[in-house]
Design a binder for these strands. Sequence first.
DNA 1: TATTGTTATACTCTATAACTATA
DNA 2: TATAGTTATAGAGTATAACAATA
Lengths: 159, 159
Amino acid sequence: MSNAAGNDQQGENSPGPELTGRLGYLLKHALSRLSELNAEALTPHGITGRELAVLLVLAGREPASQQEAAGRLGIDRTTMVAFLDALERKGLVARRPDANDRRRNVVALTESGTDTLRLAVKASDDAQRRFLAPLTRTAGEQLKRSLYKLIATDDRRGD
Amino acid sequence: MSNAAGNDQQGENSPGPELTGRLGYLLKHALSRLSELNAEALTPHGITGRELAVLLVLAGREPASQQEAAGRLGIDRTTMVAFLDALERKGLVARRPDANDRRRNVVALTESGTDTLRLAVKASDDAQRRFLAPLTRTAGEQLKRSLYKLIATDDRRGD
DNA sequence: TATTGTTATACTCTATAACTATA
DNA sequence: TATAGTTATAGAGTATAACAATA
C-alpha cells in the first residue's frame, strides 16, 4: 500500500488528547505507521506498496486492460501508465495489445512478477502481523471487519 | 484532519477481495471517506480539516510557539508557517513575539477563532458520528481504542 | 554557534487536458 | 464521435536548504 498519508517523523512533543481522541488522527497515523513497516518489508523485493497493490489487482482478475485495472484500484488511467512503466521496466508485468480491440493493452504478470508477488505478499503480511501485534487476534480481526463495514457503506452525505 | 490520502472518486469496478482484505487498503479508504465527510462538515466554517487540527493543538496547550505547535502536530515548522498565515488571514489566530525570547512567536486563538473552533468541532464530531453509523456504539469505541493502541506502540521494526 | 521564524525551492503523488491510434 | 493509452502539465501537500533576527 505505502504511504500517501504523510511521514510521521516522530514529533518532539506528544500530541495530547485533543488530537489522539479524533478518529481522523488515529486513522492517519495508523496508516502512516503501517505504510512505513510495509515499505521496509517490500524493499528487498524491489517494489513499493502501491506497486504491490497493482500486482495484486492484475493477479486477481487477469487478463485486464490498463483502464480496468485502474478502475479497480480507484486511480486514474494516467496514473496507471506510470505504474506499469515501472513494473514493466522491472520485468514484472508485460503489456500486449488486445487482439480484439487494438486500442487496449492486456496486462499480465510475468513469471518473475508472479514470483515477486508471492514473496512480496508474504513479506507484507508479515509486516501487517507485526503492526497488529499490540492487539489480540480477536481485536485485530474485529478491526478489519469494522473498517470494512465503514468502507462498504456508501453515501452518508445526506443523513 | 482532511484528506492527504487521495480522492476516492468512486472507481467503476469494485476492488475485490485481493485488495479489501489488506489492512492498508482498509485504513486508506476509511481515512479518505472520513476526510470527505469532515471536509464537507467544515466548509460552512471556512476551515479545512488540517486547520482544525492546528486550532485544536493551539487551544489544547496555549500559549504555544509555532515550533511547539508544529512538533505536536508532527509537521515541519515551515509547514506551520503556511497554516498560520492562512488562519491569521482569516482572523482566527494571532501571532505576537514572545517577550522572553524574541525569536519566538506566541500563537493564540482570537475570540473569533475560539468560536469557530467550538462550532467546527461540533460539525466535525457530527461527521465522525455519521461515519461510524454502520457500527454499533461498542464497535465504534473498540475501533478507536484499537487504533490508539496501534499508534501508541512504537518501534516494531526489529521483531 | 544555535535556534525561531521565514522564504525559496524541490519532491511526491495524483489529476486534468490534449494528442495518437484505433473503434 | 468515442475510447484506450500516452504525454505534458498543473496542483496539493510537504519537506530541505538557506537567510535574518535573536539568543
